[in-house]
Design a protein around this nucleic acid. Sequence first.
DNA 1: AATATCCTCAACCGCCGTGTC
DNA 2: TGACACGGCGGTTGAGGATAT
Length: 342
Amino acid sequence: MGRPPCCDKIGVKKGPWTPEEDIILVSYIQQNGPGNWRSVPTNTGLLRCSKSCRLRWTNYLRPGIKRGNFTEQEEKMIIHLQALLGNRWAAIASYLPQRTDNDIKNYWNTHLKKKLDKLHEDSDQETHHRHGTSKGCHSSPSSETTMYKGQWERRLQTDIHMAKQALCDALSLDNKSINLPVSSSATTSEKSQSVLPPSTQCTSTYASSAENIARLLPDWMKCSKKSPQTSSESIETTHTRSSLINQQFPSPPSEAYDNSVQFGYSNNLIHNHQKDNYYSNYSNSDVSQSVSPETSRFQDESKPNVENEMAPLSFLEKWLFDEASTQGDLMNMSLEESDDFF
DNA sequence: AATATCCTCAACCGCCGTGTC
DNA sequence: TGACACGGCGGTTGAGGATAT
């Protein structure tokens, strides 16, 4: 005898999630925590399969998710990590705590793959022009096979270093988030872009809902004394909109629903579904603030908690971290220095 | 202005390892 | 021990928006 079936396929809703469904799901997880997905549809009344609920939470509603444009450094990290780990998006995402594997996968497939293909084509042309001498540019199985041993070793070393760099970024507790300037040798345009707050770099109207949801969760606010301005700002904004929500959802299904309305993340959900510019109002806060201890609590489920606890480090992460601490000179090597390989 | 084409990304599908009974 | 469900992951799809013609 196995477990009872997850969900019968009949009567299971598919397609895009509605704001109401999001509110119900977030309210439930807020009360019960993530996990035990099988019970979620049953206990919430959502006509979704448990898998869909988990995905919705993991990829969209979970606190601390950063959406929108990828920074140049994030881009480089993805490229390096992809070269190192392959299409193991979950593993790559663990080095970018604010990004979901789905996001990274999408970004790779829609942007980076094309970009690298083009670069590869260009380098191939140049290689042919030079009668087949390997230039040692970006990694690919075909190019690697033609590399001289020394070049390959150097590349591998650099890849390992990049992974270390990525891990250190992820482990960093201060404000040196992944959005900070890559190095002192960055170009003027890079610098000017990097020093801007993440929100100002984002030109898309598509903004994060999750980080705001996180900020607005009652538990998050209760313990989030480090950023009173942000919290009060959220409260103020949400209070002004709570009446609207109460009008839109006059019959909350539970006390949790009341809480969610009270603290306003339902507003975010609704506005996010409308894909308007609402989130730009919140976007002045540092991204790092959104990854609060309470946020990490929710992130624990699918992401290593690198900010508060060292416990969940994998063997590889431990190794990288140890190596990093003993090889400070290597760690000082900037991402820019490895651009030759790309 | 209308239509065609391209692009993005949320969500689904199916597989696999693990846990439960 | 085997059968089966769960949870997680990577690949893929398709609706809708953006851009080109």
